[in-house]
């Protein structure tokens, strides 16, 4: 093989990559925050919420977990405008990520809630807390602590999955790689470099989530 790697384009194109990196980080942060919030709402509904709300939540979770993210994204970005819902590429990407993570994290958090000992609910009730207060103060935080490793992996998976949003021209890292290879014809180099970036980002995100976990849960959960 006589191929020679050529990275001379970096001098000119690094701002494109940096912009992509910033977009991917933004997408991940916003997507995670709202996605986990949606997940908590789903988990509450399925384990403690009103019965009539459960079937629609189950349908939502099953539908999202059994269809590809790419198709969810296309449906939101290309399909919804025909119903009169217009949005930018970035908004569509965030919405798709929130809906996707909401379904997955909902299932993970539900497992955490259902592992809560009965005594915790009874203890909350005996302190004259309402069902919601008990959930908020007694159940939720230990439940999150129990499933934090699984939730962290899912967040990393969603971050890596976000590379697909380049397909609706949201300008993330993958979009930058596509852009650079179309200008410089150095396809392998540009994808190789950006793949390395994703790997670093995944490692950094895992570390950050471990830090957040240690902050959020300084005490041991009741078992």
């Amino acid at each position: 093989m006589t191929y020679r790697f050529d990275y001379s384009w970096i001098a000119e194109y690094w701002p494109v990559i940096l912009k992509g990196l910033v977009t991917t980080v933004e997408l991940t942060l916003i997507g995670t925050l709202f996605g986990v919030a949606l997940g908590i709402a789903c988990a509450w509904t399925r384990s403690l919420g009103p019965r009539w709300l459960r079937p629609p939540v189950v349908a939502y979770v099953e539908l999202i977990r059994n269809t590809p993210f790419l198709i969810q994204l296309f449906f939101i970005f290309f399909g919804l405008p025909s119903l009169g819902v217009q949005m930018t590429e970035f908004q569509a990407a965030v919405l798709a990520m929130v809906i996707n993570l909401g379904a997955y994290s909902g299932e993970i958090i539900r497992a955490g809630i259902e592992a809560t000992p009965r005594g915790q609910f009874e203890a909350g009730a005996s302190l004259a807390m309402t069902r919601f207060e008990t959930f908020r103060h007694v159940v939720l935080i230990p439940a999150l602590q129990r499933i934090w490793p699984a939730l962290s992996s899912q967040i990393v998976i969603v971050m890596l999955g976000s590379s697909v949003v380049s397909q609706i021209a949201a300008e993330d890292i993958t979009f930058a790689a596509n852009f650079i290879q179309s200008r410089t014809f150095r396809a392998f180099e540009s994808y190789f470099l950006t793949t390395g970036l994703y790997l670093l980002l995944a490692l950094a995100l895992r570390q950050a989530l471990r830090g957040v976990g240690n902050r959020l849960f300084p005490r041991r959960a009741a078992r």
């Binding site: 191929y3 890596l160 590379s163 290879q181 396809a187 994703y198």
Partner: peptide
């Protein structure tokens, strides 16, 4: 670590363009 820490889409691109390097 490598395959779980990078996007599948990137792996597809690398396979597509990487195999091309062999001519």
């Amino acid at each position: 670590e490598l395959f779980q820490g990078t996007p599948l889409l990137m792996q597809l691109f690398l396979a597509f363009f990487g195999l091309g390097l062999f001519g």
